[in-house]
Amino acid sequence: MNIFRLAGDMTHLASVLVLLLKIHTIKSCAGVSLKTQELYAIVFATRYLDILTSFVSIYNTLMKLIFLGSSFSIVWYMKYHKTVRRTYDRDQDTFRHWFLMLPCLLLALLIHEKFTFFEVLWTFSLYLEAVAILPQLVLLQRTRNIDNLTGQYIFLLGGYRGFYILNWIYRYFTEPHYVHWITWIAGLVQTLLYADFFYYYFLSWKNNKKLQLPA
């Protein structure tokens, strides 16, 4: 464990807590894409399949349980909670996210580190996570004004993988044989997808005005 990875995990944890806080306290998921939340639930489900078989550390298992629990409960809130589900704008959140899953699965079947059931699903979860934010960014451009909590959620979600990139660089230089191209490229693509969001988020913060992505 290094400071970059810890910062990344804490930023990731903060992002899911901000979103859970928003949905649980103001009972609203306006501006949040259910499609992205469903994709993230699938990302964690396929990435943490080994939670029962391979034990790394208490921290590792605890965080896996938190990410699994939070992502599935967010989906549950948005789909089934009587008050929250009414605030979900389904006619704006129309990204065909199932079409994202197939290419990720095909790519995982082609490019992976080991051709085993767990490893292919783990690689699938990496590719899927890289594109999982797309429905949310598309929804952001459609809904003119977004509230601060949703903006903070996306900012933290984008930032965590940026910390992981620093972690991979650190591990590359400090651990022999630590080379994972697939993880690195997927993580880089994922972070780059947030580039324009980060730019407009910074502008809105600097000019102290509402965050608005150009249509």
Binding site: V56, M63, E113, N167
Partner: peptide, 10 residues
């Protein structure tokens, strides 16, 4: 090597 491959990151 095997331990190396085990995914120790979240």
């Amino acid at each position: 090597k095997e331990a190396e491959n085990a995914h120790d990151e979240l």
